[in-house]
Design a protein around this nucleic acid. Structure first.
Lengths: 193, 193
DNA sequence: TGAAAACGTTCACCAAAGTTAAGAAATGGC
DNA sequence: GCCATTTCTTAACTTTGGTGAACGTTTTCA
């Protein structure tokens, strides 16, 4: 399990044995069952999550309906706004499948940053990279139709379409489950003719 | 002009005179006319921008149509993906109004970071904050209709609706200019009755 | 294993956005 | 100030998504 983490970090900086030990001594892993809920609306928490295995999602309940807005899979990090703003959460975070996450919080972060300043550099670079990816993602969302978004997702994250229930995918694409169903039928129809 | 910048920074850390001097000596300001283009598709550049006055936007040309996806106004920072990925830009960056920006690039950043490590901490915190804001923004976009998005924008950034042309706003809301026109007429109609 | 709940698809109908086109209004440059 | 260009609005028509309901299938778990 540590190896997964070190492989990820090695894409940014190479670690000394000292640094590896420091991480191992502070790392908190958590195994979760499918459907387990990590955070609920109204709850406060300083934890951020790094997915080592499995898949978690963010969803809201709006007018009694579940709206999934994001999925995080292997090697992706989720920092809830509640952790940054010190404010109660507005959404749920829950496991789509059985999942293993690495927990992090401001205290352990501060400890690592002060011992190994290179870590903070890495986190800044990482945050900037994720910001850029999300920006591009948002741009694509804005400039395309639900059908294009679905076809796009098929290309870019075919794994998601396999392991995520349709109704969760639908709101992720900004539409209702019935519309996703219809849209898929439409695409099949086009390809048949 | 420096004051605007120092006011912004003071929200995160307080500066010593040494630090202020270092910033002043490295800061590069640039005044731009409405319509001026800062970056074009295909161009490489390491510059990031911090808007001191005015408004800039990101837009794509897709199938011959202009699609505006983001606006940046006073005290907002724009780091183009071209600067992070070292890759050619995929979009235009241009001035909506006359604008003054502060330029930054990896070299000047590295210089400041090595002299004043607190600066890198601030940038990490800032990047994380912006990431969270954008995440919430994206969530709201996904979970609401074009009409709701427009009403929401009226609340949150009424200034934008004043100073940005309708057709740029339309694609920012994920629709065509004609639809925005119609949607506004619809809202007026509702409020009349 | 069997009943209940959750999930996915389909349908008919309605509402809203895309498309195409025309014309009015505002803007900019000379 | 005047012409050209850009921007905004309106309208008719097409396409697509939302809604409510029904129905078969799968999952869950007691």
């Amino acid at each position: 399990m540590h190896d997964l983490l070190f492989d990820f970090i090695s894409k940014y900086i190479s670690l000394t044995e000292d640094e590896k030990e420091a991480i191992v001594s502070l790392a908190m892993f958590r195994s979760l069952k499918k459907g387990a809920i990590l955070l609920r609306p109204g709850e406060r928490s300083n934890d951020a999550y790094f997915v080592l295995k499995g898949c978690i999602r963010i969803y809201y309940i709006i007018d009694g309906e579940e709206k999934t807005t994001a999925f995080y899979t292997e090697m992706e990090a989720l920092t809830p706004h509640a952790a940054v703003n010190q404010s109660p959460s507005e959404y749920y975070i829950s496991c789509v499948t059985d999942t293993i996450v690495l927990l992090s919080n401001p205290d352990t972060e501060a400890e690592i940053f002060s011992k190994f300043p290179r870590f903070e550099s890495m986190c800044r670079v990482l945050a900037e990279e994720v910001l850029i990816k999300q920006q591009i993602n948002f741009d694509e969302f804005k400039t395309s139709s639900p059908e294009q978004r679905y076809l796009n997702l098929l290309q870019k994250r075919p794994d998601l379409i396999q392991r995520v229930p349709q109704h969760q995918l639908a709101s992720y694409l900004g539409i209702k489950p019935q519309s996703l169903s219809r849209l898929r039928a439409r695409i099949l129809e086009k390809n048949k003719v």
